[in-house]
Design a protein around this nucleic acid. Structure first.
Length: 432
RNA sequence: GUGACUGUAGCUCAGCUGGUAGAGCCCCGGAUUGUGAUUCCGGUGGUCGCGGGUUCGAACCCCGUCAGUCACCCCA
């Protein structure tokens, strides 16, 4: 019988790594909440139409990366490839955008059918942030300041750089797009294959092509910034002023465009060179037309998402995993019964387990690991040592009969002591 | 979707020009009957990713397939 394997690109999170994830998630949540952002949760599954209308029909995500299928009623559903669309849908559906602003965040798995590689999976996890109802560059800046603070909290500030750009309004972008296509069509045969294809589908994306030849052709191409209207310019300048004032460094990358159609005005990416080809760790931008596109009243929005796997990878490669995430128990409780433990009601195991309960009751944050499954004294001691616990609480027949406990310090020179239960508990509770 | 490289014990890997598998770590047990990390001794564990083919004989050669890695692409 062959073994069933996990689906390609969908990883298990093993216990050795889960505490690092918890650390990251709680650090992020704490940071976002300190800015007044509140968590929203929505389903993993949505009507396919939602993503087609928001992300854009001709984007790669919609064209070839979505997990789409018909449910039993024949309705086309899609496993969410990103969070913004669902977030807007949920807000609209519950009137969260009616005459009010919202600062929201969410966290969870996203699904894209891509070839897996470092920092890229088919089921991957994002923590996303969206701010609705605010027009000005101040909220764009707040998001950026917030992420900068977060990198500081995680200790990865030195490894990430901020790139920003302005895509302007849909109208100015359309005019620019025409000019760009006209220019590039003239040199079409010199473009790389992918860029030739994008000329008709998504010409803006040619700007961030990695092909050096294509990049050299772009030097003489029309520049997006020259096509921006006055309002876009002002918005971008104000954003820059706030960042300057706050001391957040950035690069203006005029080639920075994004793969989702709904972005306009501000776009940005936090990138690192420590992760190989998938170096974008956090990215987003403004999407003033999206709410309306999905059937709501015109409502400005800005947001971003960060890739959890990539941040985890970054923490690991930079050796920024705090020691506290390697949780070992504080106390390892042995239960060594002799050969003849006649009295079941007061076996060594029962006594040891009841002591553990008392400890947890007195001191809930104490991590007590009760040894279960018997074994020799020696093997239990070995496990106590291996567990990383600072203290082995030795409970054998002597202790059970005399209602005493033996405290042995595994990582310090303090002598082992045997005390009456009450006194021993007092001492153990003070460990934390 | 394209390309390159890889797939041997739970983990990290060795295995010469083809002769049906080995090390280290881990785990378990022992070295005076209740005291851990060192040392010593012993032990468990693999249809060599899977399926075909070539051959007297395949972990090794060939084809296919699945998976992993990295890059393209895409993006978080």
């Amino acid at each position: 019988m062959s073994k069933i394997q996990a689906i390609r690109g969908m990883n298990d999170l093993l216990p050795d790594n889960s505490s690092l994830w918890q650390y990251l998630e709680s650090t992020v949540a704490q940071c976002l909440q300190s800015y007044g952002y509140r968590e929203i949760r929505f389903p993993l599954l949505e009507k396919t139409e939602l993503f087609k209308r928001s992300i854009g029909e001709v984007t790669d995500i919609v064209e070839k990366e979505m997990y789409t299928f018909d449910d039993r009623n024949g309705e086309s559903l899609t496993l969410r490839p990103e969070g913004t669309a669902s977030c807007v849908r949920a807000c609209e559906e519950h009137g969260l955008l009616y005459n009010q602003t919202q600062r929201l965040w969410y966290s969870g798995p996203m699904f894209r059918y891509e070839r897996p590689q470092k920092g890229r999976l088919r089921q991957f996890h994002q923590i996303g942030v969206e701010a609705f109802g605010m027009q000005g560059p101040d909220i764009d800046a707040e998001l950026l300041l917030m992420t900068a603070r977060l990198w500081k909290a995680l200790g990865i500030s030195d490894a990430v750089t901020l790139e920003i750009n302005s895509l302007g309004t849909a109208e100015s972008r359309a005019i620019y797009k025409e000019a760009l296509v006209t220019f590039l069509s003239g040199v079409k045969d010199q473009l790389d294959e992918d860029s030739q294809r994008r000329l008709s589908t998504n010409p803006l994306r040619i700007l961030d092509s990695k092909n050096p030849n294509t990049q050299s052709l772009l030097i003489d191409a029309p520049k997006l910034e020259e096509y921006l209207d006055e309002d876009s310019h002002q918005h971008f300048e104000s954003l820059r002023a706030i960042l300057d004032c706050a001391g957040v460094a950035y690069h203006i990358n005029t080639r920075l465009v994004r793969g989702l159609d709904y972005y306009g005005y501000t776009v940005f990416e936090w990138v690192t060179d420590k992760l190989g080809a998938q170096g974008t760790v956090c990215a987003g931008g403004r999407y003033n037309g999206l709410v309306e596109q999905l059937g709501g009243k015109p409502t400005p929005g800005v947001g971003f998402a960060m890739g959890v796997e990539r941040l985890i990878l970054l923490l690991q490669t930079l050796d920024k995993v705090p020691a506290s995430v390697h949780q070992s128990p504080d106390i390892y409780i042995l239960a060594v019964s002799g050969k003849a433990s006649a009295d079941n009601t007061k076996s060594v195991e029962a006594y040891a387990l009841s002591i553990a309960e008392k400890l947890r009751e007195r001191c809930p944050q104490l991590r007590c690991h009760s040894h279960c499954g018997g074994g020799s004294f020696k093997s239990q001691m070995k496990k106590a040592d291996k567990s990383g616990a600072g203290i082995a609480l030795v409970i054998g027949e002597d202790e059970a009969i005399s209602e005493k406990l033996t405290i042995k310090y595994l990582r310090s020179d303090q002598p082992q002591q045997t005390l009456p239960t009450a006194a021993a508990l007092d001492q153990l509770v003070n460990v934390k």
